[in-house]
């Protein structure tokens, strides 16, 4: 994809361009305005407000909004609940990332060959991805209610992470499948001629070549489940004894009590945490791709 753009770019550049500038103005620049406008209103401004309101005393109890400095932050850090929720959120995200990728990878390898049975099986594994997350949560809640699996204060978080991974494993499978399919036949053939066993070819040639798919899958699973809410809310509602209360459920509860500024502060903390985790994770995973 990137290579295609790079080869096209010089061809399109006008010969009269000054060195160091790119002149490819096939369309007026203001054509971008609607897109930027939407970006501004729906992504940029909310983020800005997220920062602004975190430093106020906005609540459901009164009409005025006054700045209060860092009071919301000091109060949140003095109370153990925020850190507990953050810890649960990170544990949940890591578990989901592991499960979803292991399942997705296993399914992709299992269903790689284009037989009719495999095609049907792939479709079935993709159905949960299309299902409503709340529906998935409520179905599993109904299934597991009597088993006691959702009442254990230690293991319920693992169960909920498994449910989340189950729902999204079809998507990981699809991306791993695409990765496996894009490995050139010549490479595996060469390995075969060199005398590598199938096992060795798989682990030493094909798996390393899946690095871009791993990057995408791990990053989206990890960072996506950091923002998780629906599945956990529907399955356990944060219970038992708040051991599955991920940060978004905590935020939801706080907002519901009318403490809008405190809830905003927490979502800012979550935003910063996701950003802080995203950069190193994506960096490390991209580093792995460089060896290709």
């Amino acid at each position: 994809m990137t290579t295609a753009v790079e080869t096209l770019a010089p061809a399109r550049a006008l010969p009269s361009a000054r060195p160091g500038t790119i002149r490819r103005r096939t369309h007026p620049l203001w054509f971008l305005l609607p897109a930027y406008g939407l970006l501004l209103v729906f992504f940029f401004l909310p983020t800005v407000f997220n920062f602004v309101y975190a430093f106020t005393d906005w609540s459901g109890f009164k009409a005025e909004i006054n700045p209060v400095g860092v009071e919301n932050f000091t109060q949140l850090t003095s109370d153990g609940t925020l850190f507990r929720s953050l810890r649960i959120t990170v544990v949940y995200a890591v578990l989901v990332a592991i499960f979803q990728n292991v399942f997705g990878f296993g399914l992709a390898v299992l269903l790689e060959r284009d037989t009719t049975v495999n095609r049907i099986a792939r479709t079935f594994f993709l159905i949960p991805v299309l299902m409503s997350a709340l529906a998935v949560g409520y179905i599993f809640q109904a299934l597991l209610k009597s088993s006691g699996l959702l009442a254990d204060t230690t293991w319920t978080i693992v169960v909920v992470a498994l449910i989340h991974a189950w729902k999204w494993m079809g998507l990981s499978m699809l991306i791993y499948l695409a990765g496996l399919k894009s490995i050139p036949l010549e490479v595996t053939e060469a390995a075969h001629i060199d005398g590598a066993s199938r096992w060795r070819t798989f682990w030493r040639i094909r798996v390393p070549l899946l690095a871009p798919a791993v990057t995408f899958n791990v990053a989206t699973a990890l960072l996506g489940s950091m923002n998780g809410f629906d599945i956990v809310q529907a399955t356990t509602g944060g219970g038992p004894a708040r051991t599955t209360e991920i940060l978004n459920i905590f935020i939801y509860r706080t907002f519901g009590q009318g403490l809008f500024a405190q809830a905003t502060t927490m979502s800012l903390v979550l935003f910063l945490l996701v950003a802080l985790m995203a950069f190193p994770v994506v960096y490390v995973l991209r580093k792995r791709e460089e060896v290709l």
Binding site: L45, V48, F49, V52, W58, A63, E64, I65
Partner: peptide, 14 residues
């Protein structure tokens, strides 16, 4: 747009 947005930074229920 930013100033407009910030100016709207009061409780709408007020």
């Amino acid at each position: 747009a930013l100033t407009l947005g910030l100016a709207a930074c009061t409780d709408p229920s007020a």
